[in-house]
Design a protein around this nucleic acid. Structure first.
Length: 473
DNA sequence: CTATGGCACGGATT
DNA sequence: AATCCGTGCCATAG
């Protein structure tokens, strides 16, 4: 732990203050838009090319040494990568058949929406891993995905169209399947489940026989015929039900029906909106017991700095330009400074949050320790509104792959909701809301009966009565 | 008669 | 100052 607070520079001017505020409240998608437009308009600003760590292959974020493999970043350890950032347009090139030489200026500004559609969302993740010659294939696949994120087109058709081997197509699909949302690009719900299971088993214990259950008993599984499934797999009906529960809570046969947002029935009109996470938190080198690593993503590949060339030219600038250039230089400086401060604040905030919520991150909803933004502001010695801005609109990807909004860390009702869910999952006879309220009261959570009902419906659990009559059939 | 969902109010949080 | 959340009361479905 190094003394971050020493690096902290207090805002000097009102402009500085205002800029820091607005930058802080942006999530990475919005920030990206901001930076791109700034880059386009301000000649004093320059974007250094993106790099990746040669040792572990991870895309660089902003810290040194590499947070993933802890190799120091030296010039030799940094492999430059081609990453044409947000305006990567190979969808267009796929459709028109032209090459990839379209310059950024040819593209309209407004294709940088903060919320991405599914193809773009996946594309951004796999772009660094994708070989140049495989791009048209990826574009073809991604544009063919149906609204569930599954691929209805047969592989053979794709390979024929591009005159390439099935193996190459499969390789690209593998890449797509292993990006968020995991399992997208599979040809069937079954395949999607298998991919998710494979990914999940790297970081967590999974039930026995589950793979066979998906492979062989898919139709039984979807119809909830646990006894038959048990016979098929040579296990008890309870174990079969166990497996089904695991699948329904941890996996998703339709990868594009994202687990957050669309789960609340109907009310939100954003059925297929994908947010790029702003923060990643994962285990070191992907080892399940490794220490946690937090990465705060910088939305553009590379780092911003003042263009040294601009500095040189500025010294003997023509007199009619000198005023404008001076201004450009100032705004560029300001932007960089404020961005740095934004990073600083985010880092301090997250280090506190992750320490406090370690159990939640590792073990799930039940272990969330609710905090208020106000108390956090106090420990960080910043204004409450600063915390508010830093939290709002940002999402974080947990080690288990879930993408959740950062505000979830402050949700007082979450652990209780998890407990209710647990109680109902393991109930023998359907528990009524007041019974649940009583049980929770004994555990030290005094919650009104009415509130239990609210939480229950938030979790999408039916009422005790309807559960009872469902169980009989 | 009981369990549940709707509406609305007040206090806390942002 | 605006918003969110827990809760109480009341109507209604079962």
């Amino acid at each position: 732990m190094y003394p971050i607070h020493l690096l902290e520079t207090k805002p000097q001017t009102t402009a500085h203050l205002a800029q820091t505020m607005t930058l802080l409240s942006m999530n990475s998608a919005e920030l990206r838009q901001k930076i791109e437009s700034e880059l386009a308009n301000n000649p004093a600003l320059e974007l250094l090319e993106a790099r990746r760590c040669r040792a572990c292959g991870r895309l660089l974020v902003e810290s040194n040494p590499c947070p993933i493999c802890s190799q120091p970043y030296s010039p030799e350890a940094l492999e430059p990568i081609v990453f044409t950032s947000a305006r990567n347009d190979f969808f267009q090139s796929h459709r028109t058949g032209s090459s990839h030489n379209i310059s950024p200026d040819d593209l309209p500004e407004d294709n940088l929406a903060p919320v991405l559609d599914l193809p773009t969302f996946i594309l951004r993740q796999i772009a660094p891993e994708l070989a140049e010659e495989d791009r048209p294939i990826a574009a073809h696949i991604l544009t063919s995905l149906d609204e569930d994120g599954l691929l209805p087109t047969p592989l053979l058709e794709i390979s024929r169209y591009h005159h390439v081997s099935i193996e190459r197509v499969t390789r690209v699909i593998k890449l797509i399947q292993h990006s968020e949302p995991i399992g997208a690009g599979s040809s069937s719900p079954q395949e999607a489940l298998l991919v998710q299971l494979e990914v999940l088993s790297n970081s967590r214990q999974t039930p026995e026989h589950i793979e066979r259950a998906i492979r062989e008993g898919m139709d039984l599984l979807s119809r909830h015929h646990y006894t038959k499934l048990g016979v098929l797999l040579d296990i008890t009906a309870e174990e079969a039900e166990e497996i089904s529960k695991f699948i329904s809570t941890n996996l998703n046969p339709y990868p594009a029906r994202s687990h957050w947002g669309s789960i609340r029935q109907g009310s939100e009109p954003t059925p297929h909106a994908y947010h790029q996470p702003d923060i990643l938190i994962s285990h070191l080198n992907g080892q399940p017991d490794g220490p946690l690593v937090i990465e705060i993503l910088f939305p553009v590949g590379g780092s911003l700095r003042i263009n040294p060339l601009f500095r040189k030219v500025f010294k003997n600038a023509p007199s009619e330009k000198i005023e404008k250039w001076q201004k450009d230089l100032e705004t560029a400086n300001l932007l960089i400074k404020c961005l740095r401060q934004r990073g600083n604040t985010m880092r301090r905030l997250l280090s506190i949050i992750t320490q406090h919520q370690r159990d939640f991150i590792l073990q799930g909803d039940k272990h969330l320790k609710p905090i208020t933004r106000a108390s956090l502001a106090q420990t960080l010695e910043v204004h409450e509104s600063t915390v508010s801005r830093a939290v709002s609109g940002k999402t974080i990807r947990l080690p288990n792959g879930r993408i959740i909004p950062l505000s979830k860390f402050f949700d007082r009702s979450l652990p209780i909701r998890a407990m209710i869910r647990e109680m109902i999952d393991s109930e023998k006879e359907a528990l009524t809301d007041s019974q649940i309220a009583g049980k929770l009261g004994k555990k030290g959570y005094s919650i009104a009966r009415r509130t239990v009902a609210k939480y229950r419906s938030m979790e999408g659990i039916l009422s005790a009565r309807t559960r009872q009559s469902m169980a009989r059939t």
